[in-house]
Amino acid sequence: MPSDQQRILARAAREITAGQIVNLGIGLPTRLFHYLPPDLEVLVHSENGVLGCQLIDDGAEADPEMIDSGGAYIGTRPGASVFDSALSFAMIRRRRVDITFMGAFEVDRQGNLANWKIPGKFSPGIGGAMELAQKVERLVVLCSHNDKHGTPKILEHCRLPLTAPRCVSLIITEKAAMRVTHSGLEVVDIAEELSVDALRAATGAELIIDESRLGRF
Rank of each mutant, 00 (worst) to 15 (best):
H34Q: 15
R31F: 15
C53S: 14
A104W: 11
I118C: 01
V188T: 07
R138H: 13
I8T: 02
D147R: 10
V97M: 04
A18S: 15
V187A: 03
R93L: 13
V180P: 02
P119Y: 03
K117V: 03
S212M: 10
I56C: 02
V50T: 05
E174H: 14
T76G: 03
K121G: 02
A177Y: 09
D147H: 11
V187P: 05
R94N: 13
L32G: 04
M130Q: 12
R166I: 03
I154C: 00
V50K: 06
L142H: 11
N146P: 05
V22L: 02
G127H: 09
G52L: 07
D189F: 13
D197Q: 04
K117E: 10
W116C: 00
Q110V: 01
H45Q: 02
V22A: 02
V187D: 01
I99E: 07
K135Q: 02
T76P: 00
H149G: 05
G70T: 10
G128C: 13
R95H: 12
M91I: 09
M91A: 02
P119E: 08
I8R: 12
V97Y: 03
T17C: 01
E47K: 02
G75F: 15
D98I: 08
P124H: 12
L155Y: 02
Q54G: 07
I190W: 03
R93I: 01
A12N: 11
G150M: 06
E65K: 04
D108G: 00
D57T: 06
I118W: 00
F105Q: 13
V141T: 11
A176S: 09
K117N: 05
L24E: 11
H182K: 11
D108L: 05
T181C: 08
K121D: 01
A104C: 05
D39G: 08
V97I: 15
L40S: 10
I190K: 05
T163R: 15
G79Q: 06
E186G: 01
V82W: 00
I190L: 03
F105Y: 15
I99C: 10
R200F: 14
G75P: 00
G127A: 06
G204K: 09
T181M: 06
L51H: 12
R94E: 08
K148Q: 10
R77C: 14
V180R: 01
S81N: 05
R94F: 09
L36I: 15
P78T: 03
T100M: 12
R96P: 03
L55V: 12
S69P: 04
R96A: 12
L43K: 08
E193T: 13
R216P: 02
R179W: 04
M1G: 10
A18Q: 14
L194W: 09
G128Y: 15
S123K: 08
L214G: 02
